[in-house]
Design a protein around this nucleic acid. Structure first.
Length: 500
RNA sequence: GGCGCCAUCGUCAAGUGGUUAAGACACCGCCCUUUCACGGCGGGUUCGUGGGUUCAAAUCCCGCUGGCGUCACCA
């Protein structure tokens, strides 16, 4: 892609006022939830305005490159249903979309700055770099040793083939102000700006340089990124000005925090639990639920609606709903979103999606999985809760006979001892073992026991499951266990009662 | 430490000078009910702090405190 045609492209986009946003991760092999949110917002904003969303890989740091990371990023975005219009493999008119493949472009622009006097070559040794001692009043970075080298000195270095970096020549006085869409005007004193490196010794650009070049060349109109870039934005602004380029809109997102054990908060990290999109889906959260929740973490719609499909978000997302302050990631709320999505699913879809999380199943339960899944659907908030919830179906837990006692339902050990034989009797020879036939038999048991429904059900549940709380009622458990196993467990419960 | 950003229930948050300060999650209680769940109803000293400005401040201004970020040939 030639610079000229690229320029024409940008000009055309500007004339159209077409919104273009980008997500520009570095390939670290991990999609943090905060990054996912940044990508989401950039995507939603572009789509809400009929614009384009670009994926660009910022791999200018060879040392930190992780081999399959790019692929991982693409898969994660796909899973989250965030679909770039342009990017590596996808193509587009402004590629390449991988920065390491754009090396020459940056060098060319850097040299332009050197010629214009906005940048200079620095031959200093990186290890013995001249640093300001730091008087606490002004910047404490590079001492600008090479800022005004005499032409002859530069020529000598060049002739000797000395390696160099290119640094930005910062204004020494005055201030730089930019307007942030969510924060308003932000001003910083120029004397705090270091003559930052634009092109590294290895010829690669630094982030602070590459992102400016690429955002301009790719026609990015709105830069959406985390607040950690707020302090370096003035440097970017100066670069835009040096080139005479129009400034994009800056939107800095407040960070996603995690809650610590002591109640304090800090930037969401591993110690807060699962923090990557992949980890969350492995825990049994639906991608849609994660996206939905994350969309509302730091942004709020105009209405009180909370459950949104991606399509809805793509219509209503707007920048004015963004909040300035950090948001704490709340797993409990994510649980709620996830269960809302479960409730909205049909049993078939839920059964299929939940099966991989179910763990080892008995043949009986495997056959009745769809039925079980229907019961589980409104009772779990994430798939990973399933194995524990249904463990009793596979194996009757060892339980205390005291469990048979229940005050509310007026069940004593004697009552239980009285009721269980009736159930054994009536269910042992029941032809056909279906939820319907079981249900139809129950009134007879209640009648023969001459007790209330709850009084009958309680001891049966205990004998059948060994626990007070089960997903689903007694009828469902009977069906799921199968006739043989049900009778076996009832007899065992009775034996337990007769022992005392 | 310098600089910058931020500050409404436990959490997400609405709110832009006059409101009973919404709503949601979580929590607690009640109802429904064969347990659980679902569903329904109800509950809670919430505007960090001190000064201003104003008839009137969660909303505007200043200080303080606290949190976060940033000061790389990382992004």
């Amino acid at each position: 892609m030639s610079i000229i045609s690229n320029y024409m492209g940008v000009k055309k986009l500007l004339e159209e006022k077409r919104v273009r946003t980008r997500f520009a991760p570095s390939p670290t092999g991990y999609m943090h939830i905060g990054n996912l949110r940044t990508a989401l917002y950039a995507y939603l904003f572009a789509k809400a305005n009929g614009g384009d969303f670009i994926l660009r890989i910022e791999d200018t740091d060879r040392a930190r490159y992780v081999p399959d990371a790019v692929d991982f990023i693409k898969r994660t975005l796909a899973a989250a249903n965030i679909i770039p219009d342009e990017g590596p493999d996808i193509g587009g008119d402004f590629g390449p979309y991988v920065q390491s493949e754009r090396k020459e472009i940056y060098m060319k622009y850097a040299m332009e700055l050197v010629e214009k006097g906005y940048a200079y070559r620095c031959f200093c040794d990186p290890d013995a770099e001249h640093k300001d001692s730091g008087d606490g009043k002004s910047y404490a970075g590079y001492d600008r040793h090479c800022r005004d080298l005499a032409p002859e000195v530069i020529k000598k270095h060049l002739d000797d083939g000395d390696p160099f970096v290119i640094r930005q020549k910062m204004p020494l006085t005055g201030t730089t102000t930019f307007n942030d869409v969510v924060h308003g005007a932000i001003t910083i004193n120029n004397d705090e700006l270091e003559d930052q490196v634009l092109i590294k010794r290895d010829g690669m650009p630094t982030y602070n340089f590459a992102n400016v070049i690429d955002d301009h060349l790719m026609g990015v109109t709105h830069i959406i990124r985390g607040t950690e870039f707020i302090t370096s934005t003035p440097k970017h602004v100066l670069l835009y000005e040096s080139f005479g380029w129009e400034l994009p809109a800056f939107i800095h997102l407040a960070p996603v925090m995690g809650k610590n054990e002591d109640g304090s908060v800090s930037k969401l990290s591993k110690r807060h639990g699962a923090t990557s999109f992949a980890e969350l889906t492995e825990m049994g959260y639906l991608p849609e639920a994660i996206t939905n929740y994350v969309a509302l973490l730091g942004w709020s719609p105009k209405s009180n609606q909370e459950v949104f499909s991606m399509d809805e978000l793509m219509k209503i997302f707007s920048l004015d709903g963004l909040s300035k302050s950090p948001a704490v990631f709340d797993y409990a709320k994510l649980d709620w979103f996830n269960s809302e999505y479960f409730k909205a699913m049909n049993d078939n879809d839920f059964a299929r999606a939940a099966l991989p999380f179910a763990g080892e199943l008995t043949d009986e339960v495997r056959e009745k999985w769809l039925y079980l899944a229907g019961i589980l659907r409104t009772r779990v908030s994430r798939f990973s809760e399933i194995p524990e919830k249904i463990a009793f179906l596979r194996e009757l837990p060892d339980y205390d006979v005291e469990l048979f006692k229940n005050k509310r339902n007026k069940v004593t050990l004697d009552v239980a001892k009285n009721i269980i034989p009736i159930a054994i009797d009536m269910f042992s020879y029941l032809p056909g073992w279906t939820p319907y036939s079981i249900d139809a038999t129950m009134p007879g048991v209640v009648t023969r026991a001459a007790a209330k429904l709850g009084t009958v059900m309680w001891p049966l549940r205990i004998a059948l499951s060994g626990q007070k709380v089960t997903p689903g009622g007694v009828t469902e458990i009977l069906y799921l266990l199968g006739q043989e196993e049900s009778i076996k467990r009832l007899k065992k419960g009775l034996a337990k009662l007769e022992e005392i």
